[in-house]
């Protein structure tokens, strides 16, 4: 009985915390943007407007659940569910505190990459099923952008994996007790961060939705809760990428005095704030510029980073250990 209750409780706590914090994040983003843009932001509903997200949620839940007559109904409904499901599933491997993760997978990094690849379906299918030109263009942009940046994202983590000698996210955090990986892996962090921006299609990389060009891109035809799913999915995605950055590069839950989970939340919150700051500051590159930047700058940089990390590791570690890795293979 206890054996089953504990993981279910963990899942419930994490699920609730994630959904609640994605709502809070929407409020936080609006307040932060307002602060940087010389205006107030939501400040009417509840103290400091904190209940604005609740009001929005009520509004969005009570809206007409409408599917345009020209859309491919089944796929149209499925698409927004995919993003929320994949992102939430990816959270399963994130260690929020020692031992506090839904699944302590030995292939945690790979699982995360797999889930974030699957989320592309959401954008592509939404763009396709909407049967509208703006949505289609957004879906196409999304597919090309996310597929490309997926590659650099995976490569940029490999340096961390080499250093930690493990694909297990808990082990990777533990391996950072002496030094957080953002110091030896600064290029890796930058690439992962940029790829994360592209994966979550946030400004400046919000080309799949680019309001001024494509109205709302792949979710142009969506309304009500189905649009809400994309919206929540986007914020969950930001938190996922921020959690991954915290776990891989910023020492995860590690830190003095405060409890482990508090450190994790603090670091993740900081990374999220950087996401929002970038949104406030930067304009959007053109599609071909984004792709060119990815393939011509990010890919070589990620490869060089991987090579250099491997070379340095080989040079500093003793010969037996390197053969040891060879014998045992990656753990």
């Amino acid at each position: 009985m206890h054996g089953i209750a504990s993981p279910v409780l963990t899942i419930a706590v994490i699920l609730f915390a994630l959904l609640a914090s994605s709502a809070a994040l929407i409020w936080a983003e609006r307040r932060l943007l307002a602060l940087w843009q010389d205006r107030y932001g939501p400040n009417r509903v509840g103290p400091l407007g904190i209940l604005q997200s609740v009001a929005d949620m009520i509004k969005i839940l009570t809206k007409d659940d409408w599917v345009p007559p020209f859309a491919d109904r089944a796929v149209f409904v499925l698409a927004p569910a995919i993003i929320v499901i994949t992102v939430l599933t990816a959270f399963a491997v994130i260690p929020f505190a020692p031992g506090f993760a839904v699944a302590d997978l030995d292939i945690g990094v790979i699982f995360f990459l797999a889930m974030s690849s699957l989320s592309i379906y959401s954008v592509v299918l939404a763009g396709w099923a909407s049967n509208s030109k703006y949505a289609l263009l957004g879906g196409l942009r999304g597919a090309a952008q996310m597929l490309s940046y997926e590659i650099f994202m995976g490569l940029s983590i490999m340096g961390v994996v080499l250093l930690a000698g493990s694909f297990n996210l808990g082990d990777i955090v533990e391996a950072q007790r002496d030094m957080w990986f953002f110091i030896p892996q600064l290029p890796g962090l930058l690439i992962f961060f940029l790829a994360g921006l592209a994966e979550t299609h946030r400004l400046p990389f919000d080309l799949p939705e680019a309001e001024n060009e494509l109205v709302a891109g792949y979710h142009t035809e969506y309304a009500g809760m189905k649009f809400g799913m994309f919206f929540v999915g986007e914020y969950l995605g930001i938190m996922l990428v921020a959690s991954m950055i915290t776990t891989l590069f910023l020492g995860g839950w590690l830190g003095p005095v405060l409890p482990a989970a508090a450190w994790f939340i603090l670091k993740t919150g900081l990374v999220v704030a950087v996401f929002i700051l970038l949104r406030a500051a930067l304009p959007r590159p053109r599609f071909d510029q984004l792709m060119g930047f990815g393939w011509k700058a990010m890919l070589p940089l990620a490869l060089i980073n991987l090579l250099a990390t491997g070379a340095v590791l080989l040079a500093v570690t003793d010969a037996p250990l390197s053969t040891g890795i060879h014998d045992a293979g990656p753990r």
């Binding site: 943007l33 940087w36 843009q37 010389d38 205006r39 400004l203 400046p204 919000d206 680019a210 001024n212 949104r279 406030a280 500051a281 930067l282 304009p283 959007r284």
Partner: peptide, 10 residues
């Protein structure tokens, strides 16, 4: 129009 959110408010 270039995707920069802040200047318009300023």
């Amino acid at each position: 129009d270039l995707g920069q959110l802040t200047p318009v408010f300023l």
